[in-house]
Nucleic acid binder design. Structure first.
Length: 554
RNA sequence: GGGCUUGUGGCUUAGCUUGGACAUAGCGCCGGGCUUCUAACCCGGAUGUCGGGGGUUCAAAUCCCCCCAGGCCCGCCA
């Protein structure tokens, strides 16, 4: 509703001002939309902006396409307020399950996220990737796109060779209840320590790497087994966070199926390609100083070559390619894009996120200095269970556990998604364990309150009498939801949805505080129940899109 | 050394792409509100040189330049 209103306003402004590029923004506290176009005209015509704004407002008031939108000139500003009729239409839509979903589109999207190296458990930095990626995937689906989510399994790296070598030495076995990814980390850490103490041992690791690239079946199996054990651990963590993948794509497959060789063959035709022992691409014309090495002098491939093969494959099988990658991949991501561009292949849109560190410094799997996602989930779940037990002692332990798990997931996911990806952060236990405002549980709570009212409401008929300021503010915010889904997907900024959901909870809570629903009578009661249902449904849809369970009771 | 990026009240943070109306909110602090739809809530208050300096503009947190500080990257690793 609001989406089309915005376009209609833009069209009308274009006609009225004869300008192509009209400034039109969210109106904030003033209106639904606002325009500063009068300033532009004032400059051109060398006259005061306020009278121009007034003149435009008068002219737009006669425009039939803007029926139901109130246009006012406040000084030099043009304000547009969506009228009750349009608001009513939006609320009616908001009562329906699936509200906010946009029309289906044909553009097939492949979205890669997480893709952590399988040499130890996912830590609080990795899940920033998972949560950004999963939220975007949910947003794209909501926006009508067919989406396939992929995990790119780096199973050919030196790290994995070190794990395989460490497993072979079998200095310690898994503890009875130890998750396999945590065991792999112990092996990896111990193996690295041994290699540091005796650098001569690295020849064994080098040999493993050569044999796996040559396709030695026994070594290939060892690599696959080690990686699979770690991925089995990841899948538990990702399930706890409600982060699903549609497909796991193994890096080594691009060696085995010949794609990497074919890509290198293709690259040799590029003007900047050089072979002098090693093979590399000169990207200086694209603004990169360093040689982009594609193949080592011993003939083995490097990560970059396999990545080119992977992205070429994605580009040929999907219409749009999106990757979520750590900030450490910015340079190679740019090189990848530049090279794909030279090859005439589709280039990905890459969402980069900055690192999460600990108060004592950077996290490192190799050094064993990290907070695992499993530890975070366990601590937050325990804290959530305490909270639920205090508030709802009458519930069974099973019910409380189910709620606590959902609350924990909400707290973790929201705590991460609300921070802009381009901000590096320091992990903070106090923030992670906070369930108050600006948290996932806060939004869940608003939803549970709405559900509670609806459960007691009995029969009611949709009624639309949006009168009080709290009612209007809530209704307007509900009406914006489809536009927020659209913008989040278009701009690849999941934080927009996070902020929207929190503001929706804010508006609902204010309405809840000041406008009695069940205690009011007649049309007011019906109308407020209608608004509660619209708010509850919109909160539900927004939470689900954030990967957070919309609890009916907590 | 070069590149990318961030710097907003004591702490955390939105806004920056598309310059405009009193800079968003939370935590913490002070003061209120549960015989009334779940107080994981709400209301009020104090707290800001939007890192510093220059520039563009009628107008700059937002655009440009310089400087300072933090993070990341600069491997025939992945």
């Amino acid at each position: 509703m609001v989406l089309t209103a915005k376009e209609e306003i833009l069209d009308a402004l274009c006609r009225a001002t004869k300008l192509d590029d009209i400034p039109l923004t969210e109106g904030g506290g003033h209106a639904d939309f606002a325009s500063t176009v009068a300033f532009v005209l004032a400059k051109r015509e060398k006259s005061a902006p306020a009278p121009i704004a007034a003149e435009i407002a008068r002219s737009l008031a006669k425009d039939p396409t803007l029926a139901g939108i109130t246009i006012t000139a406040t000084g030099p500003y043009l304000n547009f307020t969506i009228g009750t009729e349009r608001l009513t239409r939006a609320l009616a839509a908001a009562l329906e399950p699936g509200y906010g979903a946009l029309p289906s589109k044909d553009t097939r999207v492949v979205l890669e996220h997480t893709s952590a190296n399988p040499n130890g458990p996912l830590h609080v930095g990795h899940i920033r990737n998972s949560i950004i990626g999963d939220t975007l995937a949910r947003c794209f689906r909501k926006a009508g796109f067919p989406v396939e989510v992929q995990y790119y399994v780096n199973d050919m790296g030196r790290q994995i060779a070190i794990v395989v070598w460490g497993l072979g030495r079998a200095t310690s076995l898994p503890d009875p209840n130890e998750k396999p990814d945590h065991y792999i980390a112990r092996v990896y850490i111990a193996a690295n320590r041994a290699l540091e103490e005796d650098p001569g041992l690295t020849t064994a690791v080098d040999s493993l790497m050569q044999r796996v690239e040559q396709g030695d079946p026994g070594v290939e199996r060892q690599f696959r087994d080690a990686v699979s054990r770690c991925l089995a651990g990841f899948s538990v963590t990702l399930r706890d966070l409600a982060v699903p993948h549609d497909r796991f794509v193994w890096e080594s497959d691009f060696i085995r199926n010949g794609d990497t060789s074919r890509i290198i063959g293709q690259l040799r035709h590029l003007p900047g390609y050089h072979v002098d022992g090693k093979e590399y691409l000169d990207l200086r014309e694209q603004g990169f100083d360093k040689e982009y090495v594609i193949r080592r002098s011993d003939g083995t491939s490097v990560y970059a070559a396999r990545d080119l093969a992977y992205h070429t494959w994605k580009g040929r099988n999907f219409d749009r390619v999106i990757d979520v990658l750590g900030a450490d991949h910015k340079l190679i991501g740019a090189q990848l894009i530049a090279t794909l561009h030279l090859m005439g292949e589709k280039t990905p849109d890459i969402v980069h996120f900055e690192f999460v560190s600990l108060p004592e410094g950077a996290m490192s799997t190799r050094a064993g200095t990290f907070v695992s996602a499993d530890d975070l989930i366990r601590e937050v779940s325990m804290r959530a269970l305490d909270e639920v037990t205090t508030r709802r002692p009458e519930l069974s332990e099973e019910e409380r556990t189910v709620i606590a798990r959902a609350v924990a997931r909400a707290a973790i996911r929201y705590d991460i998604i609300r921070i802009s990806p381009d901000k590096s952060t320091v992990f903070n236990w106090k923030e992670a364990l906070n369930f108050e405002r600006q948290s996932g549980p806060y939004i869940q709570y608003a939803h549970a309150r709405a559900c509670s009212i609806l459960a007691k409401a009995g029969d009611w008929q949709p009624t639309y009498e949006i009168v009080t300021t709290h009612e209007v503010a809530l209704a307007r915010h509900i009406a914006r939801f489809p536009a927020v889904i659209e913008e989040t997907a278009m701009t690849l900024r999941p934080g927009l949805l996070a902020v929207y959901a929190r503001e929706l909870a804010d508006h609902f809570n204010a309405f809840y505080q000041f406008e009695p629903v069940l205690g009011s009578e007649g049309a007011t009661r019906e109308s407020r129940i209608t608004l509660v249902r619209a708010a509850q449904n919109t909160l539900h849809e927004a939470l689900e899109t954030l990967g957070i369970d919309a609890l009916r009771s907590m």
